[in-house]
Design a protein around this nucleic acid. Structure first.
Lengths: 207, 207
DNA sequence: GTCTATAAGAAGATAGAC
DNA sequence: GTCTATCTTCTTATAGAC
């Protein structure tokens, strides 16, 4: 039964490197260490493997966002977390989100695959937007709402604040997906960005 | 001889909709109104058609950026253009850049194609980064340098300013590539973003 | 420059032995 | 569950007539 997952994993690696259509079932089988026809005992078609990857990601994604949303719907806990927002903690949040997206094995491979397949059907398009635009933006927007409510940040349109905070992170993330050797440069710019962001929006500057 | 360009154009349309590997030469030929073998009188291979698209784009891109850089290296002209920077003109610049990227036929199809092919080789990766990250960022950075020098904007790290200005535009652009029906929503958010950007960085606020 | 005919190979998938 | 052998279809590309 472990083979079923090993197929999924090998397929995701190959799809993320070369794209779905460029990868043959023989290649996937080879990576797993079996012959192509054996795959069909685990998945009924190549597309079925792809769908398996989507399902697996959905499970992981829901687990992960559920953990984050729990914070969002638990203001008492948030108070403890965010009452001591410093420039450093904002930078840590940004860098943390960035490095998680960039280096988490499954997340990273999945994003590259989805990047290549996003125009192939409407479902994949909305999935991409949800995971890399709508959800992060509404998550950040929630956080800035709380920080504004606590009086820590200037009150502003939190949607625009979220866009200001997250969009540079997104741009640099997609840049590093293409050119991993530029990660240090990206991290430096990201840090400068968040410092500037903090300078702009934070009420009391104690630096 | 017109057929050679019609092949390029049809191929770009198909590649931008379905990706290079999903499109067959028969499909391209069909779109042009000829049979597949006739293509080989104009291009020696399928890959050669793809390379033709790249060359064509390079010509267009260099023409376009040369026109922009001319401003950059002509401070006298710039003074005339930028001495009267208002919130509206900044919004116009942002919206203008956005709608050009989003609606110019060749630019739009090329970007979608490149999005799907960016991981297939290192050259395409750097080309993507150049066109949609490095070049726009350095262009914006130049503009903000001048605006700071003119005393119109607060002096700041212009690289970070460029990132603040452009990254939201980029995120919303890629979003609209996937979900064109959200263009109005994106334009609204883009306008709010630039208003906020202006509020933050402009020295004298006369509103 | 366009066509028909066809080569030559790769792809996804099935049958059936072990 | 894995294998070999095979089927079918699609793909890029060429040959050669018009």
């Amino acid at each position: 039964m472990n083979t079923k997952f090993r197929i999924l994993d090998a397929a995701l690696t190959l799809f993320s490197e070369k794209g779905y259509h460029t990868v043959s079932v023989a290649e996937i089988a080879d990576a797993v260490g079996i012959k192509a026809p054996s795959l069909y005992k685990h998945y009924k078609s190549k597309r079925d493997i792809f769908n398996g990857i989507l399902s697996e990601m959905q499970v992981r994604y829901e687990k992960q966002t559920a953990a984050l949303q729990m914070n969002g719907s638990n203001p008492t806990a948030d108070a403890g977390i965010f009452s001591s927002v410093t420039e450093d903690s904002l930078i840590q949040m940004g860098i943390g989100l960035f490095t998680y997206f960039l280096h988490d094995d499954y997340v990273c491979r999945f994003r590259k695959m989805l990047t290549m397949e996003q125009f192939h059907d409407a479902e994949l398009a909305t999935l991409y937007t949800k995971q890399y635009a709508d959800d992060p933006l509404s998550y950040q927007s929630q956080i800035f709402s709380m920080l504004s409510a606590c009086g820590l940040f200037r009150t502003a349109y939190t949607d625009v604040m979220a866009l200001h905070f997250y969009a540079p992170l997104y741009l640099l993330l997609t840049l590093c997906d293409r050119e991993p050797e530029r990660e240090q440069e990206a991290l430096l710019l990201l840090e400068q960005h968040i410092k500037q962001f903090n300078l702009i929006y934070k009420k009391e500057n104690t630096q």
